[in-house]
């Protein structure tokens, strides 16, 4: 069942993104940004944690989950060290993903070359 809900919830979140792409003039970069901010908001109002509990990777793999991660990190850090946690918590929690992307990016640049699309 874990897998089924991961599939359905994750796929469903992607469909929301697709509807935004098809019906609005939002560019992909704007949609990604909106998803992350929306994830922070949904997490802050307490809606995302139950969804992540229920759908596992279906909720954490889409970029909404990235926002949830930032919000949770901030919360944890504020609990631990107070106000400075508002500055440190987000990126601390997201550090793994961001660092991995950047490292993969530079290594890929070393190994690969820009290619024609056909």
């Amino acid at each position: 069942m874990n897998y089924l809900w991961a599939f359905v919830v994750g796929g469903g979140i992607c469909v929301v993104g697709q509807l935004l792409l098809d019906y609005t003039k939002l560019t992909p970069a704007r949609i990604l940004t909106a998803f992350v901010v929306a994830g922070v908001v949904l997490s802050a109002v307490g809606l995302y944690a139950p969804l992540a509990e229920f759908a596992g990777s279906g909720a954490s793999v889409p970029l909404l989950g990235f926002g949830h991660l930032l919000a949770q990190g901030v919360q944890k850090a504020v609990d631990a060290i107070g106000l400075p946690g508002a500055f440190t918590g987000g990126l601390t929690a997201a550090a793994g993903g961001i660092a991995a992307s950047l490292i993969c990016g530079v290594l890929a640049a070393l190994l690969a070359k820009s290619k024609d699309q056909n």
Binding site: V36, V37, V40, V41, S43, A44, G67, L70, A71, G73, V74, Q75, A77, V78, G82, L83, G85, A86, F87, G89, G90
Partner: peptide, 10 residues
């Protein structure tokens, strides 16, 4: 956004 939430949470 997470910073804003951090402030509110604090």
């Amino acid at each position: 956004a997470s910073w804003v939430w951090g402030l509110l949470y604090w």
